[in-house]
Design a protein around this nucleic acid. Structure first.
Lengths: 240, 240
DNA sequence: ACCTGAACACCGTTCAAGT
DNA sequence: ACCTGAACACCGTTCAAGT
């Protein structure tokens, strides 16, 4: 019903070497690349050692040479997309104002969430290896870079922590929501599951009908920009 | 390493009828109650039809009389805690000011996240049955009640939608973060997993050291209250 | 009406064995 | 050095059979 589907139907797997021929030699990077691709298209729950092996033209057991286990594979996936983020954001020129800087960083993270909507929940909910690293900003390297950028714009150590907190919370809320609507394709027939649990008579909930109208348009763009502006104003106030 | 642990060790299950004797007769409610309890103590990934059955003193197959499958069981768990929330918040007297009202609602949702930190990610990441219902505010009933409360305080339909959006995003970001630190007990030995993936030499990341100091204190309380206040101000501005 | 045994198609993971 | 076969302990789910 949700991710994996109730019935365990054979997932049509490409015959050993179909698709982009996964450059013959196995290795950690190739495995992670393919794992990300797999989650992007099939979702986290369908990713299985055996299936991933099959996509790579190899038996599942071969993966254990390069990855300790399934959990660590998922951690590796998170690491992988965070490295993408690092390349995409930290290599840019640092803008003149800290406001622009925060915009740049925020849009970078959002681009990640939009490119990998089904990976993003992992970034957001996996217990961080370092407990003081907050999702969805999970890379030591990236956060260090982020803080360095703030320092360039004259933020003190203490201010930076405040910004980091507000920033990560802001991104988590907005992007997890947006990724959620992107990830799971069509939510199948809409009222189907609902009625199983709750009275589905929408007439009982008059306000919800209007809500659904108002919310259906993809207001994520403006919502994000507005809230980001507010966040920046908040930071500005905090600094005075 | 994360949830389920790598090795599949038998999870010491109480002999059929240990613990609180789960009132003899099976049924949907008893099943959900026990499922919530199970996730609270063992985590989502360890919840399995067979184990849950065993806790209830019954074979796994018996559960299928009352629940269509595992995915729907998890949906039922979400439904269950949302009903808890409804009872806790919607039955209260509506305060004089809308500011107090929003405070009351926010604290209600937060209490839920704190009481069920390992269930909360489900509330936050499961694809909503109704796509315009945003996590973590997933109950038709609850949202209808929430909107009705706003209406009582003179909010227009359109304003209400804006408040609903900002409110749900705010809660999602903050509470998912807080639940994350509560749920998974001690994150085991801190630097253990990290070094597998990234250079763990914290001296390479000087700012992170200070960050970890500043963040270690559980600032969630003040953080939440501050951000809530900001949100309320934002709503106030929006209304003018 | 309510539960179970047995069976099926899947899992993750280990390890001795192949090349 | 790198991969596989076979095995083990688990899964979710179905269904005919028990009471």
């Amino acid at each position: 019903m949700t991710e994996d589907g109730a019935k365990q139907v054979a997932l049509e797997l490409p015959a050993a070497d179909a698709g982009a021929p996964p450059s013959r030699r196995l290795g950690r990077q190739i495995i992670l690349t393919e794992a990300v691709r797999f989650i992007d298209t099939h979702g986290r729950d369908r990713l299985t050692m055996r299936r991933l092996g099959s996509v790579l033209g190899v038996e599942a057991m071969a993966l254990y040479r390069y990855v300790p286990g399934r959990e660590q594979l998922l951690d590796g996936v998170v690491e992988y997309v965070m490295n993408e983020l690092y390349e995409a954001t930290m290599r840019q020129a640092v803008p003149e104002s800290w406001q622009e800087y925060l915009q740049q960083m925020a849009h970078g993270v959002r681009a990640l969430a939009v490119r990998h909507p089904r990976v993003f929940p992992l970034v957001a909910t996996r217990p961080p290896a370092a407990p003081w690293l907050r999702p969805p900003l999970r890379s030591l390297r990236w956060v260090e870079g982020f803080l360095a950028g703030l320092h360039l714009h004259g933020f003190s150590r203490l201010e930076s922590v405040g910004v980091y907190r507000a920033f990560s919370t802001f991104l988590l809320g907005h992007l997890l929501l947006e990724a959620g609507t992107l990830g799971d394709g069509q939510s199948e027939s809409i009222g189907d599951d609902i009625e199983f649990y709750e009275s589905n008579d929408l007439n009982e909930y008059p306000r919800l009908l209007e809500l659904s109208d108002q919310l259906s348009q993809d207001a994520f763009d403006v919502e994000f920009e507005d809230a980001l502006e507010d966040l920046i104003n908040r930071v500005a106030v905090m600094r005075t």
